[in-house]
Nucleic acid binder design. Structure first.
Length: 205
DNA sequence: CGACCGATCGTCT
DNA sequence: GACGATCGGTCGA
């Protein structure tokens, strides 16, 4: 089932179906290495943002601004933007340069570096809120807006595959969180979760 | 330059 | 389940 972790290569990111990639990112391991300390967690919740035709995307209608510039970057770029003034949200860019496809990482199950995550978040103990929700996981792993535009082939932030695969029955598919203003696109089944995982954000589907 | 809003979170009920 | 904090980004004037 499990093997030595390998960094995902360009063949994973440069595909056209961002919804499929969002599904396949479940079970992969997001890693940051900062100050010689490795922090990592298994991805258990994702959302796809499908480019200029997706009303929930920052790139809807071809909009391209200072904030969303890195959404248009080459595959395996990190796109990090600030939400509600304080929360960095981490996205994986896919497809090809100038095609603004991204996958928002919404929750992790911690693996390495929990002590460092506690320091970064200021939490006294490692409860499920440590890496539940996109803002929380960014803080725990030390991801900030400064990371936006960086490559996921770097040694600072990257994604690994250790061979773990979730079965179809373990995966839940729902509409996305917090995108009510996207009208009909708010109903798209673009959110993927590991059923029953305590780190998945508990929200109404 | 000012007004508005948000891919959230924590707290309170 | 509801609500307010909080501030960067965006857009209009």
């Amino acid at each position: 089932m499990s093997r030595e972790p390998q960094k995902l290569d360009s063949g994973f990111y440069d595909r056209k179906d961002v919804v499929k990639i969002a599904r396949e990112l479940l079970g992969k391991i997001l890693v940051t290495r900062r100050d010689g300390i490795r922090c990592s967690g298994r991805i258990v919740e994702t959302e796809a943002y499908a480019g200029i035709n997706d009303r929930a995307s920052h790139a809807f209608g071809g909009r391209r601004t200072t904030r969303s510039e890195h959404l248009y970057g080459p595959p395996a770029t990190a796109y990090v933007y600030i939400c509600y003034g304080t929360h960095p949200l981490f996205n994986v860019i896919t497809n090809k340069k100038d095609v603004p496809h991204g996958v928002l990482i919404r929750a992790l199950e911690p693996i390495d570096g929990v002590d460092q995550m506690l320091i970064r978040t200021g939490k006294p103990i490692a409860d499920f809120t440590l890496t539940k929700g996109p803002g929380n996981l960014s803080r725990a792993l030390g991801i900030s807006k400064l990371d936006s535009g960086g490559s996921l082939f770097s040694d600072e932030i990257f994604i690994e595959d250790d061979g773990l695969r979730y079965k179809k029955i373990q995966v839940g598919i729902t509409k996305r969180i917090g995108v009510e203003s996207a009208r009909e696109d708010a109903e798209l089944p673009y959110r993927f979760i590991v059923k029953g995982n305590p780190y998945v954000s508990a929200r109404k589907s």
